[in-house]
Simulated assay, not measured.
Amino acid sequence: MKIPKLKINVDNSRHSRYPIDMSTNTHKKPIQPTGNFRAIPVAVPENLTNIRVILFEPREPGNIGSVARVVKGMGLSQLYLVNPVPFQDVDAAWYMAHGAQDILENCQVVSELKDALEGIQYLVGTTHRRRDVRLPQPVPAREAAQTIATLSQDKSVALLFGREDFGLSTDQLSLCQLSASVPMATKNPSLNLAQAVQIFAYEVFVASLEEYPPSEIDYAEVNALEEFYGRVTRLLDKVGMSPYNREWETYLKSLRRVFSRAPLEPRDIATLDMIFSTTYRYIERLEKKLESTQ
């Protein structure tokens, strides 16, 4: 007996980045209300809209897509990519973002980290390796998640992840008010980028299900802090101070550590700026007077 061949009609007009539905009409699953689909239905905490996930130079399009899926699944919406590998026309990115293509389509792609930090008041960096002793010791992901859930009630908070092969540099971690890590049983293997994002995002989601009072501290934006540190080092250079081997980046790490012991508010920066800026302008006036007498 001749067995008839199964003919499958494929609609080639659809873009290849979206997975093709190969199911037949006779085997379609019944449509279920979203609220009844998950085993444990929960209301999405509102503070999650204030949390940003930033990937610094991600190298794998598939990881970018997977992270987009994590972002949506954990109730987040902000995904920023800093100098990523081209991914928009790579099928793997869209396939791995299954169900979260909207996050991938609307993610923000920027060339520099400072652009991704625009508006961020509290930055949490992630790491797997032991770091410079001048940096604060990392806290477990769960503890960091509680801090993020608390501050994001009324402030903009970001989770920063490094590239797959190197992670975040020491300089990048020194920008963060808090560094965090996932406790693991062994040194290797380390977590895949998307796996790390999933763990942190889940911990933040669970922590956000609790109620927290808004923080009374009006945190200054991370970029405003960096601009302030730049003005401080400019003054120190003006008066002739020179760090060892003129390594200002190394000195900046120490400077950030000193000022991070107590959170700075915009009014704190304005107060300190008055001292440093007035001193800098005074020195400039003296220099001009000296030049005019020569």
Results as ranks from 00 to 15, higher is better:
I3V: 13
K5Q: 15
D21N: 13
T26G: 08
K28F: 06
Q32V: 15
R38S: 15
N47K: 13
T49R: 11
R52N: 14
R52E: 14
L55R: 00
F56I: 07
F56C: 09
G65M: 05
V67H: 09
R69T: 01
G73D: 06
L76H: 01
L76R: 05
L76S: 02
Q78M: 02
P86M: 06
F87S: 01
Q88G: 05
V90A: 13
Y95G: 05
Y95R: 13
A97H: 03
G99Y: 13
I103C: 12
V124R: 11
T126Q: 08
H128T: 11
R130G: 00
L135T: 05
Q137Y: 13
V139I: 14
Q146V: 02
T147M: 05
T150D: 04
S156M: 15
V157D: 03
L160S: 03
F166E: 12
L168H: 03
D171E: 14
L173T: 08
T186R: 15
K187G: 00
N192F: 08
V197F: 10
I199R: 06
E210C: 04
Y212F: 12
P213A: 13
P214W: 00
A220N: 02
T233V: 03
D237H: 04
K238D: 10
G240S: 11
S242Y: 08
R246L: 07
E249Y: 09
R256H: 05
R261Q: 13
P263A: 01
A270V: 03
A270F: 05
D273I: 02
M274L: 04
I275L: 15
Y280S: 14
R281D: 13
Y282H: 12
L286V: 11
K289N: 11
L290C: 06
E291P: 04
S292H: 02
T293K: 12
T293L: 12
Q294C: 04
